[in-house]
């Protein structure tokens, strides 16, 4: 359906914006390495199911793309364009996010099985993975416009999945309560950012936090 397609597209675009920003400016200023590391974890734990579950060629290619691009971005950030200044303000304690997501995945899952727990873990972790990045924005008070486009596209992906879930619930009777709940949590975390993005970036102002 259209929402799911738009969501996936926006997810894809967000990664391309980020890659393009890094390559062009040859800098990772203002980008949280911690958030990017969390995404590697998210994609690895969620998409390793491609080794034992086949959905479609589209699904497989997208999964491979997200796993490889996220690892590549972390590689660029650590080895190629290392930025100690940015690292110094990237101080969000991600061990709590990882630990919390792990505990939640043990409690909430469809089956107490390795693959299912990993799947649940990835959903919980994804819902909070942007926090180090948002925290960094808050500390610096402003961001490059491209960085805000990246965050917006990334947030739009899960937000667009919400009407997709409603659509699938109506048309197929399919309800993935874990994905829906974590997707809503994720959207709430982004809501403040969306609001500022709408009021400043889209109206041509610099992204500055009030």
């Amino acid at each position: 359906n259209i929402f799911r397609a738009a969501g996936d597209l926006s997810h894809l675009i967000s990664i391309l914006i980020l890659l393009n920003t890094i390559q062009k400016s040859r800098s990772i200023a203002g980008i949280s390495l911690k958030t990017q590391i969390l995404y590697v974890l998210v994609f690895l734990t969620r998409y390793l199911d491609l080794t034992y579950r086949y959905v479609s060629i589209y699904n497989t290619l997208m999964k491979l793309f997200f796993i490889s691009s996220s690892i590549y971005i972390v590689y660029l950030m650590i080895y190629k364009f290392k930025n100690t200044e940015t690292e110094q303000i990237d101080t969000f304690p991600i061990e709590y996010l990882i630990g919390g997501s792990f505990i939640l995945s043990l409690i909430f899952n469809y089956k107490f099985q390795f693959g299912e727990i990993l799947w649940s873990f990835s959903l919980w972790l994804e819902s909070v993975a942007i926090l180090p990045q948002l925290f960094m924005l808050q500390r610096t008070g402003e961001a490059r416009t491209l960085t805000t486009h990246y965050i917006f596209a990334l947030g739009a992906y899960r937000t667009l999945y919400i009407p997709n879930w409603i659509f699938r619930w109506i048309s197929e009777g399919r309800v993935d309560y874990l994905a829906i709940f974590t997707g809503i949590v994720q959207t709430i975390i982004y809501s403040d950012f969306f609001y500022i993005y709408y009021h400043r970036v889209l109206k041509g102002f610099k992204f500055e936090l009030p």
Binding site: R4, D8, H11, D49, R53, V55, S56, N59, M62, K63, F66, Y110, K111, Q113, E116, W119, Y161, N164, R174, D176, A179
Partner: peptide, 10 residues
């Protein structure tokens, strides 16, 4: 139909 949900989304 399997007892776990089909994870067909990204």
């Amino acid at each position: 139909k399997s007892d776990t949900l089909d994870h067909d989304e990204l």
